[in-house]
Design a protein around this nucleic acid. Sequence first.
DNA 1: CGGGTTGATTGATATGGATCAACCATGGGC
DNA 2: GCCCATGGTTGATCCATATCAATCAACCCG
Lengths: 255, 255
Amino acid sequence: MPERKVIPLDQIKVACKNCSLATLCLPIGLTPEDVDRLDQIVKRGRPMHRGDQLFATGDPLHNLFVVKTGSVKTYCPSTDGGEQVLGFHLPGELIGLEAIQDGFHHCAAKVLETSAICEIPFDRLEELGTRIPSLQHQLLRLLSKEIGHDSGMLLLLGKKSAEERLAAFLLSLSTRYRQRGLSPTDFFLSMSRHEIGNYLGLAVETVSRLFTRFQEEGLLEVSRKHVQLRDLDGLHELLGEHEPYLRQAGIAMRS
Amino acid sequence: MPERKVIPLDQIKVACKNCSLATLCLPIGLTPEDVDRLDQIVKRGRPMHRGDQLFATGDPLHNLFVVKTGSVKTYCPSTDGGEQVLGFHLPGELIGLEAIQDGFHHCAAKVLETSAICEIPFDRLEELGTRIPSLQHQLLRLLSKEIGHDSGMLLLLGKKSAEERLAAFLLSLSTRYRQRGLSPTDFFLSMSRHEIGNYLGLAVETVSRLFTRFQEEGLLEVSRKHVQLRDLDGLHELLGEHEPYLRQAGIAMRS
DNA sequence: CGGGTTGATTGATATGGATCAACCATGGGC
DNA sequence: GCCCATGGTTGATCCATATCAATCAACCCG
């Protein structure tokens, strides 16, 4: 059983050019000089704790955020006090893109566990983009990826059963952990059952029952937040055997 | 009862600078000179008919598409022959943005009725964007808007009842028709009940029953494809009284 | 015009997952 | 180390919506 990660302080302030996330984040495809220029506008590694808010609905867009360590959820609060969880974000993922359309955030973002977050002033990023075409291109790609991901979620919520949704969710986490050099089969969930259910359009109780059922079927072992996937192929088969779109959209393999 | 629109031929080939959609489409915020430059790369007004495909899943990204007249649906085909409808696109809306992430289309697009479609070679658009910052900005905004719209759909599919979904759908059409100078209360649906149900994650029969129920309640009158909304406020109330996110995300008011 | 195909409506029944209700485990605070 | 708060699990019941089945209306084509 892996220890829960303790964030080494000396990794928090690392520059983009030395950051292990460079291949997942904005710097992809940039020359070292361009990464240096990006580095100068990035505000790095503010450490935050469970429940801290990155931004709220209606806030003006100042910064985009990148998870450096830890995890973040985005959600849209509803008038009745409820909310819809829109996504869970792992290291290297860019948050706040929905605000570009009109300069205001349309959802909120909260830190799920102790996390380090980079902030990028959007106006400076955009201005830098006009001078570095490959940065602009990368930004467009990241927005587009988000659209593809959302489309996969629409398919999931529109057409898939509870069991398919949970399987897709777990496989998505698995793939994203693998990409980050972490175990794709053994990890801790930083979000509650309630948040998982909310994200997947299911009741908490359904999520809980599915976890126990998956365990009985030998697909995984679960103990509170600790999950060990025992049969990745079996989980994949639950998704209607190679649903091509979910793969491409990155639900099962957020690429 | 309005006549079904017949497309006047002389409007098909109109340049961006004279196009009635300029305020909804890419040219927003561009100087007249920049619109001229954009004009030079746009391939205009290819007329297409119901069922014609703009692109299929897996096609390489060559062009982005803009609906000039008519309407288009995007959807992702599923292995089992089924599909998930991702969106219905009215004049001025840009299609194909999900393909920017890796240069391949992850969904397919089909024309719903006789339509005129503009095509924009993406590589030339992007290259033009590096020289016209306001064009680049507008492109980012359009991508971001798509993300916001998708988030609204996730809320709709994740949390809302069948009746709320259909009301939101109708109000979204209403608002978008209004923005285009058409009647927000009297229009033809270019998509079938089956496609509406698919889009909203509902069975055809449920959609049909809801239409009749809404009619009985005096919210609208419907006869096949022809819809007349009689009580916009009543429909809005169905959406849990001013759900702020749905409004901002543009489900009920795609802005 | 008439037969056949497709899409829409309506009714009867089935069911997946929500909801309601206990109960249990964990962990944090005093 | 105990107590309470919170989150998770499990069971019983209910309901919204799917599914199955039949009929109906429109439209196309010969």
